[in-house]
């Protein structure tokens, strides 16, 4: 199982070399820290999904001594592992460049990341290969650009909701959203496992 997660790094050695430059570019462009965290977290998992979408990859993985449950589990656990690593590296770089960021930035990006993976991953196993990567690429960019604006728009205009949220104590708000994100993530995991179990390769 650990091998399946480690595989991602070997698989995209070259792309990883672009990882740091991309981060630096975003920092220089003065992008929103939350966006930088989100980008960094999604970088490795998304590239792997693009690989795994190919039928051949699924044939290979399923011909090796792995079970289908393990293959899916490695996707979901791997995403978490790489997210943690990415957040750590990104924080380090931001600190080095003396850029300020808050825990809220990290929490927001983690929340969005979990949501994104929870929605995107099953798609790779439901749809025919070839379509999903471009669709996701666009929706990711769309989400990244529009997402923060929607949040601030909502904050300004949907006062009922924001008032409700503001009235919640911080611990409740954070635990609540963390639980919600994890529930969605877990449900997505279960769903994908089920879909993959009966998938014809």
């Amino acid at each position: 199982m650990f091998n399946l997660i480690r595989r991602d790094v070997i698989l995209q050695k070259r792309l990883l070399m672009l990882f740091i430059p991309c981060l630096l570019f975003l920092i220089i462009m003065d992008a929103n820290p939350a966006f930088i965290f989100l980008f960094a977290s999604i970088y490795i998992p998304f590239n792997t999904y693009a690989y795994d979408e190919k039928t051949e990859t699924n044939i290979l993985l399923n011909s090796l001594p792995y079970t289908r449950n393990e293959i899916i589990a490695s996707r979901y656990l791997g995403a978490l592992v790489y997210m943690v690593l990415a957040v750590a590296i990104t924080s380090l770089i931001l600190l080095l460049f003396n850029r300020s960021f808050t825990i809220i930035d990290i929490a927001l990006s983690i929340g969005l990341f979990l949501l994104f993976v929870a929605i995107a991953l099953p798609l790779f196993y439901i749809f025919k290969p070839g379509y999903i990567s471009p669709i996701l690429m666009f929706s990711f960019i769309f989400l990244a650009i529009i997402g923060p604006r929607i949040v601030s728009f909502a904050a300004d205009h949907l006062t009922v909701v924001t008032n409700f949220l503001i009235n919640l104590s911080n611990p409740i708000l954070y635990t609540g959203s963390a639980l919600a994100a994890l529930t969605v993530y877990g449900a997505s995991w279960g769903f994908t496992t089920f879909v993959y179990k009966y998938k014809a390769l």
Partner: peptide, 28 residues
């Protein structure tokens, strides 16, 4: 089981050394 399929199922852009690094740990 050892398998050989018609056509390449290994990750296309990779070299044998990396493919081995991915496949080898799968087997006891």
């Amino acid at each position: 089981i050892g398998f050989v399929y018609d056509g390449n199922v290994f990750f296309e852009g990779m070299n044998l050394k990396d493919i081995k690094r991915i496949v080898a740990p799968a087997y006891k």
